[in-house]
């Protein structure tokens, strides 16, 4: 368990950021992180022996984030927590973060997962497809749709690309 705790200590920040990107809510992100860690702990012996706990955690977290939408007949409303992290700071920085977060919340969970993997985790399209368990062409189309929607909701912020 010690090596698991050490790994969590080292990766907690990264996991928290990705979870927040995927959920848009502090509490939901915390739950997603804990669920992900529980699954990693469940298979810790195997994944640590293979030397791939980061990759496994990434895959589990993105799957959980997408599946939570799949399991529901009606897509649940996004919950906005109080005192979100983007409100730290002042003036234009805060406004810019809020706009980006709101735009991200307009995406579907799969689109957010794709954006996370492609533009935050810096994975290639092939690697993204492998993590999400879909084809490369699906990753391409999902990315295209996600960026189009982000541009629609944050034109000033994202017009450069």
């Amino acid at each position: 368990m010690e090596d698991f705790e050490a790994w969590v200590q080292a990766r907690a920040g990264s996991l928290a950021r990705t979870a927040y990107l995927l959920t848009g809510d502090v509490h939901l992100a915390e739950d997603l992180v804990q669920d992900t860690l529980a699954r990693v702990a469940d298979h810790w012996r195997r994944v640590s022996r293979r030397g791939s706990p980061d990759a496994y955690a990434r895959q589990v977290m993105h799957h959980l984030a997408v599946d939570r939408w799949r399991r529901r007949r009606v897509r649940p409303p996004e919950a906005l927590g109080a005192a979100p992290p983007e409100l730290t700071g002042h003036g234009y920085d805060v406004e810019r973060r809020v706009v980006l977060r709101d735009a991200l919340l307009r995406l579907t969970p799969r689109q957010r997962a794709t954006v996370s993997l492609r533009f935050y985790e810096d994975l290639t399209e092939v690697e993204t497809a492998a993590v999400l368990g879909c084809s490369v062409s699906t990753v391409k189309s999902t990315t295209r749709d996600a960026l189009r929607r982000l541009r629609e909701h944050a034109p000033d912020l994202l017009e450069a690309w």
């Binding site: 920040g13 928290a16 927040y20 860690l37 992290p85 983007e86």
Partner: peptide
């Protein structure tokens, strides 16, 4: 700033 808000319990 997210890591300050999202805490992991190993």
């Amino acid at each position: 700033a997210t890591p300050s808000y999202v805490v992991a319990d190993a």
